[in-house]
Design a protein around this nucleic acid. Structure first.
Lengths: 342, 342
DNA sequence: TTGTATGCGTTATCAG
DNA sequence: CTGATAACGCATACAA
């Protein structure tokens, strides 16, 4: 009698073993798993018994190969550590899981090179389609070959191809309208990078509001950031050093607003008494910043869900009822804004 | 002449097409791709020419099936939207990509049911192994079958199986030592859920420090949270309402500390003049909170990298030089701590 | 309803 | 160094 070190090292049973034990054909086993309704109750029972007996686990690698589908979706994101994207990803993953698809994570670090590496994954059949989280305009979008199914989950006005988005321009206008209604006339902007599609849309909204109120546009009031807290912190210095300082700052996202508030406070500004600050996105920290941040909330959950549904339809060849879906935003007033000082 | 709507709808060429065009055998093409050094320069050139001509993309589904490997790793995380985990995931994904593996995202929402669904993915060969981000003790760990390769990337003292971790107990002690050195004797704790392994380790460190300083442990100074900002906000009320209030609060993560600071400030406490607050993890917001947060920084990048390397070694059958790796933490002093008031 | 037989695209073995 | 060919595990068209 020898010592059994590995007790049943690996049964590794396959569909043939199950068929043999259940005394049916492999075809019946296959059907029992994918189309149970096309199999007699008797056979079904025998198959299930055999599966349990052998603790058979179907080899999905084989199934995927055979059906020429990865049952996986690539989610391409500029930076997973950005809380704004995390929310999307959680919603996307949840929906994919429900529908039997896996989510492959592709953090591009914002570089086209890495995007290409990931796109290659769908060209080599490791993924069936792409959810693009980078906001893209006409120029940048066509990195992705036309034959790969792709949905942009946080698009812009100029995004080509299927997309779920909010109306960035309108939302930005609403925010600036609000600041104007509080009596602010000199409103600074902390923008994203000049060619970022979100930044472009939101700046347009800012200009719309100014124009409607008859306030002339002053390019000196635009500070450029890159959507990070650090860049917001730096951008705010530009306003601290101005001769005629703005009485309000419209930041194009919450993180830059939070960074900016640090600079402003340490330079002696009281928020909102001396200067109002607004954000965009409503990340979870917006509620806990000091003061809490007036901002625009995007329905990230809903957007992720819709984007995934749209992509899966494309993958499965169903017709799209609409190629673009624009969702409403929510305007959230907190403590970082107040009427202009007399 | 007919109108070509689809220009080359899909060549979809396979290895056989390449072989035919290059006038070599499929075996040679296969070798040219995976072991180029075993192929003559002449054949290599012909093969590459044919690949370019046909714009051939190898079918990885077939390769994976044939080699019985998914070349994918499942990352199981309680909540992707938690910034602490995001950092890990970014590092993990980066490393996996470098080594030719994909990352499958598995957000478990903290439930065992969903963990099981994801574990099934590796049992059905869709993933080759698991990176577990949930801190786990003996009891909880063995949900994962012993034959699936798994590494815990942020483990604890009681984590069984391969793990990368920090010394939570020592780090917590160091933080409390520091508070004691500032003269604090009555130090409140905002804990994670009582049975959370991180909470257990860090509470042990707190007690170690107290004992060493001869300060008696008072269980009324422990408030239970769940690592969210909201729970920190609530937990802090417990301290505001005490007769003899603590002069410092040791929060077991940054998010709860940020929540707690909001409660404290709105109840008239000045931080750090009236009360010191400390965090744990050093998420990016810790630097931008008001006041900026004294905390412990974990080397998340390094931990993710090491965890992935360890897992891939296990998957590829290489021997592990060590089953557990404990990394050093960094102690970061910012503005939320000060000597106790006289 | 069930079984038989074929092929999916690749890698690996083995003989030349 | 190269080529012919046999798997890999499953799904499906077709026949029964």
């Amino acid at each position: 009698m020898t010592l059994a070190i590995n007790q049943n090292p690996k049964p590794m049973s396959n569909i043939r073993d199950v068929a043999r034990l259940a005394d049916v054909s492999v075809a019946t086993v296959s059907r029992a798993l994918s189309n149970p309704e096309k199999v007699s109750p008797g056979s079904l029972a025998k198959v299930h018994a055999a599966i349990a007996e052998l603790s058979y686990k179907p080899n999905m690698l084989a199934r995927n190969f055979r059906s020429a589908r990865a049952y996986a979706v690539l989610v391409m994101v500029p930076d997973i550590a950005n809380p704004f994207y995390s929310l999307f990803i959680r919603a996307l993953e949840d929906r994919a899981q429900q529908k039997g698809y896996a989510v492959l994570l592709g953090d591009t670090r914002g570089t086209p090179e890495r995007e290409l590496e990931y796109i290659r994954r769908v060209e080599t059949r490791l993924a069936d389609g792409i959810i693009q989280l980078r906001p893209s305009s006409e120029k940048s979008q066509n990195i992705i070959p036309p034959d790969v199914p792709c949905v942009n989950a946080c698009g812009c006005e100029f995004t080509s191809g299927p997309a779920i988005r909010i109306d960035n321009r309108k939302a930005a206008k609403m925010m600036v309208d609000y600041l104007i209604s509080l009596g602010h006339k000199r409103i600074g902007v902390i923008s994203g990078l000049r060619d970022n599609p979100h930044a472009i849309d939101r700046l347009a909204g800012y200009k719309d509001a100014l124009e409607e109120a008859g306030i002339p546009f002053d390019k000196d009031l635009i500070a450029e950031g890159d959507f990070t807290m650090w860049s917001g912190l730096n951008a705010a210095f530009q306003f601290c050093n101005m001769d005629v300082k703005p009485t309000a700052i419209f930041s194009m996202n919450d993180e830059m607003a939070i960074g900016a508030m640090q600079t402003l406070k340490s330079n002696g500004f009281r928020i909102p008494e001396d200067i109002s600050v607004t954000g965009f996105d409503d990340i979870s920290y917006a509620k806990y910043s000091d003061p809490s941040l007036t901002t625009i909330s995007q329905p990230a959950e809903e957007m992720g869900k819709l984007a995934m549904d749209m992509l899966l339809k494309m993958i499965e060849g169903e017709p799209l009822s609409q190629r673009e879906c624009v969702l409403p935003t929510e305007f959230i007033i907190r403590k970082s804004t107040a009427p202009v000082k007399k």
